[in-house]
Amino acid sequence: MLNTVRMSKLMNSILKRSFWILGILLVCLSFSTGLASAQSPTPSDDQVNAIARQLFCPICENIPLDVCPTQACHDWRELIRQMLAAGKSEAEIKQYFVDHYGARVLSEPPARGLNWLVYVVPPLAFCAGIFLLFMAFRTWRRTGSGSAAALVSDPSMPEKDPGSANSQGDAASSAVDDEYAARFEEQLRKQR
């Protein structure tokens, strides 16, 4: 009985120690992985260019930083590489460039000040264009059908086989042709 109690205590002690050791090991492991990630290897060109292409060369305008061939741009790409290696995030790097060189270096300018026009005017112009086209088409359709209706309903116009014109547009054009033909014949008759 005594042996069983001793054994049980021993087992408890071993288990407790095991938990402690496991806990310490886990903590050490997490620290080591953290250090490993902080001391990440030199960022690749692809990683650098992923950020560089969102920025424009501040001195040679309209050239993205990732393809700019100047020495200054090379220096800035190296700066991005250093900042990435130091653990800076993409947002932090972009903010650094904005702070140093102004918002003009961003390929997508922030929507403030007059910049918002860039985001608002094109969609508005597009919507206005669609609206104008819609109005124009509607007006043309009404005008066309109105003229056709007027011509077809004109009793002085020659009769036309209704089967020959399937649509109102055809009816309108053929009616106009018939009218001119009728006038032309009338003129010829007068001259004789």
């Binding site: 109005m135 009404r142 005008t143 209706a149 007027a150 006038r183």
Partner: peptide, 13 residues
């Protein structure tokens, strides 16, 4: 014979 299209009411914005 004259063609008198029906008066179309202008509808704009």
């Amino acid at each position: 014979n004259t063609i008198n299209p029906p008066a179309i009411k202008r509808r704009g914005a």
